[in-house]
Write a protein that binds this DNA or RNA. Structure first.
Length: 224
DNA sequence: GCATTAACAGCCG
DNA sequence: CGGCTGTTAATGC
């Protein structure tokens, strides 16, 4: 169980909840630490909590039939995910790996369903979250030709900084080029080249162990 | 051609 | 010093 104050810190959506709903939410939640490289769950697991990243970086991915690993998305601190599997009471559709030491918040599915049945604020948040994800998905399908490495990197960085999915993100992203590679499905060297291209176009600025976002909108629509 | 792996020097904290 | 970055060379699809 976590305190009401802790809930405010780690869960931006709690701002939409009434006192009673906050009480329910915090009683149904715990925090858990994962070491770098650790699996949070595997594809096919019956793992029921809804998840939020409190600190660290998490990779959502899977393994194709041919055996190569495919990354679906990265999730940074402040992001919440997994509501699809919880709502449908189904097994996880992907692997979750901590790319560095991470702390996650876990909400029991019974609590999630209670909020779903009783809280207007929580439902407003859920609809907003789904809507934003659909928007990302549409943007992905819109460009049927495959993206080059620079475009993949640009889009994945933009997703990590989505202000609706991660409202407190700000303009700075603490992430190494290797981590961007793991999330984007591109080698570290290709990430390095991509970042330099994007910096020249003034869409972002590269620093040591992090980047500053200058033009999120252009990053999210970037085509080579 | 473009991207990947491997290897390495240099830089930053 | 250890981790991260920027580059180059060799290899693969």
């Amino acid at each position: 169980m976590i305190t009401a104050e802790r809930l405010r810190e780690i869960a931006f959506w709690s701002a939409e909840l009434t006192e009673e709903e906050i009480e329910r939410a915090r009683r149904g939640m715990t925090e858990k630490a994962f070491a770098k490289g650790a699996y949070i769950c595997h594809k096919g697991d019956k793992f029921d909590p809804w998840l939020g990243v409190v600190s660290g970086l998490v990779r959502l991915g899977t393994v194709s039939q041919k055996g190569k690993s495919v990354t679906l998305a990265g999730m940074r601190a402040g992001g919440w995910f997994g509501e699809g599997s919880v709502l449908k009471k189904e097994a996880r559709q992907y692997d979750l790996v901590a790319l560095r030491d991470a702390k996650l918040a876990l909400m029991a599915s019974a609590t999630f369903f209670w909020l779903f049945e009783n809280s207007a604020g929580f439902n407003r948040f859920l609809v907003t979250q789904f809507n934003e994800r659909i928007g990302q998905f549409i943007a992905l399908v819109e460009f049927d030709r495959s993206l080059d490495a620079t475009a993949k990197v640009a889009r994945n960085i933009a997703w990590l900084c989505n202000p609706v999915l991660v409202p407190r993100a700000g303009n700075h992203l603490d992430i190494t080029q290797e981590e961007i590679g793991l999330i984007s499905g591109v080698s570290r060297q290709a990430v390095n080249a991509a970042l330099q291209t994007l910096e020249q176009k003034k869409l972002l600025r590269v620093g040591h162990g992090g980047i500053a976002i200058l033009d999120l909108d252009k990053l999210s629509h970037y085509e080579d």
